[in-house]
Amino acid sequence: MKVWKQILLCVAILLVAAGVWVRFFPGAQETLAGWGFEWALAATPAADGKPAGNQPPRAAPTLPVITDQVTMETINDRLRAIGTGRANATVTVTPYTSGRLTEFVVQSGAHVNSGQVIARLDSETEEIALERAKVARDQADAKVTRFRALRSSNATTVVQLTDAETELRNAELSVHEAQVALDRRSVVAPISGIVGILPIEAGNNVTSQSAIATIDDRSSILVDFWVPERFAAAVRIGAELSATPLANPKESFRGTISAIDNRIDDKSRTLWVQARIANPADSLRAGMSFEITMRFPGDTYPAVSPLAIQWGADGAYIWAVDAGKAKRVPVRIIQRNTESVLIEAGVASGDMVVTEGVQNIREGDEVRIARNEQPPAPGGS
């Protein structure tokens, strides 16, 4: 077959297909009119063979339609997350030096203050060193006193007195050094808090790397949790929240946001947030799990039944009932829920939208809303 015959055959097939589409596809005539082909709408024959553009307006549909009311729903107004609590401050206590642990001054579960001694190491050597340094200091001090008396009678030189004073100063520093070494044989609490279970017993040899106690400051509890990326801009330092222990859902604690991470985790798409909860009764412990609840203003959108959503060549739309006539309203779907669809459209709360009978509706058609009639009771007249 020659090329021009193939082209004519393709054109004929396209014209036939276009005619079938215009004749039988619902909404085709309105689509052509929207594209500027009003002549096609006028020339399209109706069922009786007359042009559709010359026909009088159609009568109201014989089939009733079922409608549903538009409501307003708010999303992104509440955040629920699971967080893990930890102490306001936690310190693992280690000795300054190596030695034999002679005694624990406190027991597990005791409350200690910052600077309080909690354990001691053997310190005989350090005590001897301190006494020796004190003897040397006393000798140097006596020498300075004697040289000053001799200097007043010009029996000694200025250089000799200066050397004696320097010797006294070095002796005082040696005493201070020996005292520090002795003090460090006592292990003190760096913070105030509660002592945990002691991992070792007195009599063990320890080093500067040995953990002999853990102290938790539980005056307040820090809760780490992660929020979805969409809430990142809404979370603020100082914002209030509610924390409910999963082990005791009947209790609820108030807290505030104390810290927010500076980046979104690129794997989980969540933001690390930290909250602080006061713990005056000491009823909370580090490691507890909490359900965190936060409230936000949220975003409000119209909500319609999923049956009201229709799809056309230009996207989703709904049929709204305006003064008894059908009106096609384009929509943008925001969120699909189980019983409703949140949309962005030119409708308001209380407007009626068609949910059943949409196959027979055209733009501007008069519609009749069917009423829900209850069937008569058995045995009734």
Rank of each mutant, 00 (worst) to 15 (best):
M72Y: 09
P61D: 10
K50F: 09
P64Y: 02
M72D: 09
K50A: 13
T90S: 15
N54L: 14
T31E: 12
V93G: 01
A43F: 08
D48T: 04
T71H: 09
K50G: 00
V70G: 05
T31F: 14
S98N: 11
G34I: 01
T44N: 14
T71P: 00
T90K: 14
L63C: 00
V65G: 08
I82F: 06
T44W: 05
G85R: 05
P56Q: 13
G99C: 04
Y96T: 11
A47H: 05
N76I: 08
T71W: 05
P45N: 02
T97A: 14
L63I: 09
T74V: 10
T44A: 14
P51V: 04
A81I: 05
N54S: 14
G49D: 08
E73L: 13
I66H: 11
G99L: 02
Q69E: 15
L63R: 13
A87M: 03
M72W: 07
P95W: 02
I75D: 06
T71R: 12
D77R: 10
R58L: 13
A42R: 12
T44C: 14
P95S: 01
P51K: 06
A42H: 12
A59G: 12
W39F: 11
G34F: 06
D68N: 14
V91Y: 03
T31L: 12
S98F: 02
T44E: 09
A43M: 13
T62L: 13
I75N: 08
D68W: 04
M72P: 00
R78V: 08
D77C: 01
D68E: 15
R80S: 12
P95N: 01
T84P: 02
D68R: 11
Q55R: 15
T74E: 03
W35R: 09
P61T: 12
Y96P: 00
E30D: 15
T44K: 09
E73G: 07
T74F: 04
T67F: 07
N88T: 02
N76K: 10
T84S: 12
A33W: 03
Y96F: 13
T74P: 04
S98P: 01
P56K: 15
R80M: 10
A59K: 14
M72Q: 14
G34N: 15
G83H: 03
T62W: 01
W39V: 11
E73K: 14
P61E: 09
G49Q: 07
A42P: 02
A59T: 11
P64A: 14
Q69N: 09
W35P: 02
